[in-house]
Design a binder for these strands. Structure first.
Lengths: 349, 349
DNA sequence: CACGTCATTCAAAGCGCTTTGGACGCAACG
DNA sequence: CGTTGCGTCCAAAGCGCTTTGAATGACGTG
């Protein structure tokens, strides 16, 4: 059943039927109703391919899932982000096209998307400092919104980001208020923009109390469970271990927990942990109080907001870039407590 | 730059240029070379939309990401699976279209995909017992491959699955060999096909030693960290706790670990844990020996195989359905050890 | 009553590609 | 020398939709 057949049945021209279905005003209400009724009866659904060619719009948003070369690592927050964005796309009649690409081929992948006209816009994930993808997308003329921001990237662009600096300052202050003075930051990869902002926030809070940021207590790495385990374990085994850890995601925090237990220490008592919680659906930080003290911001919500913003800027191409800055709230959980009174002694393995 | 312009530049008809570019034989080698060279020089790339309309093929594979209603839960293995499948699609010139859909709308989503012609085939995720989506897809005439299998679903269909029954029997035997007699199964949702097979495998191994499957030691649920924590904690608090846990995924196993520690018990010593490991990229079960004793099977590899199989069956529509059964290997880790000699006493909270 | 206006409808021309059904020239063949 | 066959190439007809420009008729107006 295609448009031609349907209009033949109705005794109307394809023009009128098309307009009736797409809500154009130059068709009488009576005819519109008749058309809609018949379309439903015939179970007519316009062919997407033809529609796309005729309108020149792909009605599709592109997401590029970069896979890091060394570890074949997939960003664990990706699925939840997509779940949020996907909801919005579905509601607006858009499809979501996902391209899995090796890190180093990412620029070419964007070029390809723009050229082939398969997408009307893209979401840029995991921005780095001065990210080259931003000028690239601008040059390609492809509407985009960045999940995160890119320090030093010139020019304005759409973004949705958490106030990471403020969140981490808040988290660090919480630990400082509890009396901790030896605080470690278990951060993400150093070239990620969010990691820098988190470091700044951490450092802001320490500076307020005139404390220095110690290199040995600042780790950067891909946020896996193993990374959390190894760095925390390493720090705890040193002769002057931290009493608190600020961990950039719940996943390395799980490794941190394992390390702390393996060292025979108790979380929230002998060692405090505060995390950034992306509210991943399979890692709800639940309980009363929640398992982890956390600065929380739902990545799924960020997905929804990114999608909204992108669809808007596709609808109005000349709109000025917009920004959404999300606040992360601190919620107290079981994993943080007062700094131990006595300077904790090193325990053996 | 489109085909018409390109052929004008070359002084050839669009027909010939199209054939030259698509490798048809009825064009001389000299012309083909000339066309290819000019296409590259002009940076010509055919418009995907037009190509799709003209060929009637979408050159796209659909994946439906169902979001469970109650917990807004996204399957954590999804991202890694897509990373594997996506690699294959990219290599074959296919796009990947992802639809985020509420559980209850899934059937309609498949209908929609088939009707609108946006995809050439789909991958079916998370099959349940006698899954209605299988006859539906068959009726829609949409090529598909199932990641997993569906017990009782009539008729043959493409699938890629792990031998869950064998894997769980093997895992349970390992625990039995270590002397455990009180073994709990922390399984996935009861209506998932894989969960049933795992239960069968578990039960096979117990039956070999004439042990019954105890209901109180068999849990079914959505595989979150919290689920692992709560069920394991509940079982450990009972008056006759299990000495070993067989956990269906690394994620509830993290909760299990937390519960065991909260009870003041040591993993691999006082309590053994064996997991099914999907080899998620952000949860590498690493170390020497690895953290968890596990039956392992890479979900990413499954993604690649599903994609391969699907592309094959799209290429040859009349091919008989094919099946790939993956073996999960047991790898010994730190989390399992001999059953405690003395019947362990209950410890207080 | 002639005319402009408006609402409603339609024919036809795209969108950029593929593919069918020749056309043309040349070599080989009887 | 006419025919056949082959290698190359092309014109034109789609694919199923949207959209431009025009036609038609009804209506109100001077």
């Amino acid at each position: 059943m295609n448009l031609k057949e349907l209009s033949a049945i109705l005794g109307l021209s394809p023009t009128t039927v098309s307009r009736a279905l797409n809500g154009y005003p130059e068709v009488s209400e009576a005819t519109r109703r008749r058309v809609l009724a018949e379309a439903k009866r015939q179970n007519y659904h316009p062919d997407t391919r033809a529609k796309r060619l005729a309108t020149g719009r792909a009605m599709t948003i592109g997401h590029i899932l970069p896979v890091s070369k060394e570890h074949e690592m997939v960003n664990p927050i990706f699925a939840d982000f997509l779940a949020g964005a996907g909801e919005v796309y579905a509601g607006a009649g858009y499809d979501l096209s996902l391209a899995v690409v090796r890190d180093e081929d990412e620029a070419e992948a964007y070029r390809d998307l723009a050229r082939r006209g398969t997408v009307d816009g893209v979401v840029l994930h995991g921005p780095k400092l001065d990210d080259p993808r931003i000028p690239l997308l601008r040059e390609l003329g492809l509407p985009f919104v960045v999940h995160g921001r890119s320090t030093d990237a010139e020019g304005d662009y759409n973004w949705v980001d958490v106030d990471n600096r403020r969140a981490f300052a808040r988290a660090a202050r919480h630990l400082l208020d509890l009396g901790h003075r030896r605080i470690a930051l278990i951060n993400g990869l150093a070239d990620m923009d969010f990691a820098l902002r988190r470091l700044f926030g951490f450092s802001d809070a320490l500076a307020e109390r005139s404390l220095p940021v110690e290199d040995r207590w600042t780790a950067h790495g891909e946020m896996t469970e193993t990374y959390g385990y190894e760095t925390v374990r390493g720090m705890l085994e040193a002769h002057d271990p931290p009493t608190a850890f600020l961990v950039a995601s719940i996943i390395p925090a799980l490794g941190a927990r394992r390390a702390i237990h393996d060292m025979g220490l108790r979380i929230g008592d002998e060692v405090s942990v505060v995390i950034h919680d992306d509210a991943l659906s399979y890692f709800r930080n639940e309980g009363t109080p929640p398992v982890y003290t956390a600065v929380r911001s739902s990545v799924r919500k960020a997905g929804r907001l990114c999608a909204d913003l992108l669809l808007q800027s596709i609808a109005e191409p000349n709109r000025a870039p917009d920004h959404i800055l999300l606040e992360a709230e601190l919620s107290l959980g079981q994993s943080s407590g007062p700094a131990p009174r006595l300077f904790r002694q090193r325990k053996s393995r």
